[in-house]
């Protein structure tokens, strides 16, 4: 466990969690991220694990020493109406073959959303009459 993910070495991933939550009708289906190489060697990055078919990821293949590269995670259309908590794991080609696991989370709060999606609807405020009944 990493208490302060900003202190990771040899790379820093910003943000350290990929939140592709959607709060409203505007579709949120992707998340950009940065990978900063804080070491003094160039690093190759390889994807070693992610849920099959759930999303696609564009990863920089190499991040030069001291440089920052951009990546993007895009959700598969099939999973746009789902909430989930998954993760992906990358591996570096440093001496330790360091691995980093990035949580990927999606929460849905869509007004009038599909009830079949479970929690994917806006919670209504409590009924006034029931709120006053305790007094």
């Amino acid at each position: 466990m990493v208490i302060n993910p900003d202190s990771t070495y040899p790379i820093r991933i910003k943000p350290y969690k990929f939140d592709v939550s959607q709060f409203g009708e505007k579709t949120v289906d992707s998340r950009e991220f940065l990978i900063e190489n804080v070491s003094d060697s160039d690093l190759d990055i390889a994807l070693v694990d992610m849920p099959y078919g759930m999303f696609t990821i564009k990863l920089p293949k190499r991040v030069k020493a001291g440089q920052t590269e951009k990546g993007i995670l895009t959700l598969n259309e099939k999973f746009l109406d789902q909430e989930f908590e998954k993760s992906l794991t990358i591996e570096l080609n440093d001496a330790a073959k360091s691995r980093f696991t990035v949580p990927v989370k999606r929460t849905l709060r869509v007004p009038g959303g599909n009830p079949a999606a479970g929690k994917a609807t806006v919670q209504q405020p409590p009924d006034k009459s029931s709120a006053q009944s305790n007094h």
Binding site: M1, V2, I3, P5, T8, Y16, K17, D49, P51, Y52, E85, K86, S87, T89, E91, S98, R99, F100, T101, V102, P103, K105
Partner: peptide, 14 residues
Amino acid sequence: DFGYVPQNSGISHV
């Protein structure tokens, strides 16, 4: 091997 994992995170592997 998950490697570095942020604290209090839900992670998964098949």
